[in-house]
């Protein structure tokens, strides 16, 4: 069995671990780690009968995820303090928002960088406040820096000098070079206050962001985790008003694909009009589940295709050619 499908199957129905032999357990953990889903897996199967060695891995992963959650929420609080004087809305995005709001995708979830959304006209003030509070530039290359500032939906990443944690400051959720232009003002206007003085996106916007991130940007690397977020959020918020909100952001197609892929991989319950399978869906499914029993990525041709697609989504062809030429001369090669 494809080990990525094995993982998806266990996340869907944890009781299926009863049938696993030792090699299956090894493949399951290898893929879960590679897809950053070890903590999620651990929480799903905790307490079920399983071999002692597997139970030990579960216990380790749960403790690790809990520490990651504490650190991520602390990092959000550090950003809140650094930006408190500015009196601008600070909207937590992705993993940190799920954790701060106690939403179901956050259970066991690894949280990477701190992602926040602020109004575009506040970007300079936010940047200055973060620099004053000991965040520092990561990208030393002037081309990369200039590229971010001119074309990206976020500041060049900043890293905190002492805590070694990265912050991504967004003013919208897709690069400015992409054809799709989500309604950033609406994202901010309909954001919801959290108890900690920070904000999170509204329910439908949270789903739109997750779908945009996975299917309208990037090459689907680590996609099983992002799709699991979508599966959980759909279970949490349902489908009311989702199609309309996605359409408002130009993300109707991305949202529809996200739902179809989530239904296929994780068995998400969706109304009939959201179900189906278009001509390209099988390819997306193959890309999402391209892992071997060691957690290594497979299907190199499919991956390369999605890598190229991610760039075509991100910018027009002439600009892409110029960008790739510049990066190539600087010695960058795709993995």
């Amino acid at each position: 069995m494809n080990p990525a499908l094995l993982l998806a199957g266990v996340l869907r129905d944890p009781a299926t671990i009863a049938d696993l032999a030792a090699p299956d357990w090894n493949a399951l953990w290898a893929v879960a780690r590679a897809e950053q889903l070890a903590g999620t897996l651990a929480h799903r199967i905790a307490g079920l009968p399983m071999p002692e060695a597997a139970a030990q891995l579960v216990a380790d992963a749960i403790v690790s995820a809990e520490q990651g959650r504490t650190a991520a929420l602390w990092e959000a609080e550090m950003a809140r303090r650094a930006l408190a004087e500015l009196d601008v809305p600070v909207v937590l995005l992705k993993g940190t928002a799920y954790a701060a709001a106690g939403l179901s995708p956050s259970v066991g979830r690894v949280i990477g960088d701190l992602d926040i959304l602020v109004p575009r006209d506040a970007m300079a003030a936010v940047e200055a406040a973060l620099l004053a509070a000991s965040w520092e530039w990561v990208k030393p290359d002037p081309y990369d820096d200039a590229y971010y500032r001119r074309w990206m939906h976020e500041l060049p990443p900043l890293i905190h000098r002492d805590r070694d944690k990265m912050i991504d400051v967004h003013h919208t959720i897709l690069p400015l070079t992409a054809r799709i232009r989500p309604d950033a003002a609406a994202l901010l206007a309909d954001s919801v206050a959290l108890g900690n003085g920070l904000r999170m996106l509204g329910a439908q916007d949270m789903l739109c962001h997750a779908a945009a991130h996975l299917f309208a940007d990037g090459d689907l690397a680590g996609g099983m985790r992002n799709l699991w977020d979508i599966h959980c959020l759909l279970g949490e918020f349902g489908f009311d008003g989702l199609a309309e909100r996605a359409a408002q952001h130009g993300l109707g197609a991305a949202m529809a694909r996200a739902v179809r892929q989530s239904v296929r991989l994780y068995g998400t319950e969706a109304p009939p009009k959201w179900q189906g399978w278009d001509a390209l869906d099988p390819l997306f499914h193959r890309r999402l589940t391209a892992r071997d029993a060691w957690g290594r990525s497979t299907r190199k041709a499919v991956q390369l295709g999605f890598y190229i697609r991610s760039h075509l989504l991100r910018m027009p062809p002439a600009m892409l050619a110029r960008h790739l030429w510049t990066k190539w001369r600087k010695g960058y090669r795709p993995a």
Binding site: A22, P23, N26, W29, G295
Partner: peptide
Amino acid sequence: GPRDDIADFNVH
């Protein structure tokens, strides 16, 4: 071998 033949870590 690992307990229950389930490894803590993989090396490639």
